[in-house]
């Protein structure tokens, strides 16, 4: 029984890290890592809404985060707002909304820490299936739209000029990113999820020069860190999500030393 429990948690850690790492090169190249950070915090309001209304947490949070992600894009465009400011406003207001909603419940049964820092040991078999499907969908999305994502990341305006359907692909990208963040919250946590969106690609960029190999290296780095972090947390009795992030950071430092000279 313990063995099954451990394998499930380990698989959860690997799938969660890898699915985030697949998006990592695009998030980093497009310089939207702050968006990943913001969406994970915005998810907090979604979690709170589901908690107060007694609804399915993941489904409500997913819809909420996707709606906010699209609203940020639309509002910034329509009212010519600085996107970074709009994102920060939504981030703070979502956190405020979440805190208010949770405080409205008289009986405080909300396990805030597990959402903030994640807990891979809480991953159930059905969560594992969802994570597996997410991983496959993410991989399929990146392979299918590789050309479009490549040019979108290179230069959004010129890609649009040469008739790459930038708006469609960007919306799909945001939706997939939001899904990745929400579904990975349980395993990775609100605070730590954005680290797993940045670190694997930052490491891969030091080791590889082509985008396909960067994506592969990014996924491998994430998988190695997940297994290593899981082992560290088991033997040293540390929180798994934090151990994975620290290990990803150590791998990043090593990659800096291995980086070919410019």
């Amino acid at each position: 029984m313990l063995y099954f429990f451990l394998i499930r948690a380990l698989l959860g850690a690997i799938l969660s890290s890898v699915s985030l790492a697949l998006f990592s090169p695009f998030v980093t190249l497009r310089r939207v890592s702050y968006l990943g950070e913001a969406l994970s915090h915005i998810a907090f309001a979604g979690i709170a809404i589901a908690f107060v209304l007694g609804l399915h947490t993941q489904a409500v949070t997913l819809v909420f985060v996707m709606a906010v992600a699209l609203a940020i894009g639309r509002l910034s465009q329509k009212y010519k707002l600085e996107e970074a400011n709009t994102i920060t406003i939504f981030l703070s207001v979502s956190m405020a909304l979440g805190i208010i909603l949770i405080s409205l419940r008289k009986v405080y049964t909300f396990d805030l820490a597990s959402y903030l820092f994640g807990n891979v040991l809480m991953v159930s078999t059905s969560d594992l299936i969802v994570l597996g499907v997410l991983c496959l969908l993410s991989l399929g999305f990146i392979i299918f739209f590789f050309k479009e994502l490549f040019y979108l990341s290179y230069n959004f305006e010129m890609a649009g000029f040469y008739r790459v359907p930038v708006s469609l692909v960007n919306h799909l990208f945001l939706a997939m990113l939001a899904a990745n963040i929400v579904i990975n919250l349980k395993a990775a946590g609100i605070i730590l999820v954005s680290a797993q969106l940045i670190l694997p690609a930052s490491t891969a960029f030091n080791l590889s020069r082509k985008l396909p190999s960067m994506i592969a290296v990014s996924a491998i780095v994430a998988a190695v860190a997940a297994v290593g972090g899981f082992a560290m947390s088991w033997w040293l009795d540390l929180p798994t999500g934090a151990a994975i992030v620290v290990l990803e950071f150590i791998l990043f430092l090593i990659s800096l030393l291995l980086r070919p000279k410019q």
């Binding site: 190249l29 479009e148 490549f150 890609a159 040469y162 008739r163 790459v164 960067m214």
Partner: peptide, 17 residues
């Protein structure tokens, strides 16, 4: 400038449409 593309990749954008 660190974008992982070679010159031909950039030329090929002209055929994306």
């Amino acid at each position: 400038r660190r974008f992982p593309a070679n010159a031909l990749d950039i030329v090929m954008l002209g055929l994306a449409a």
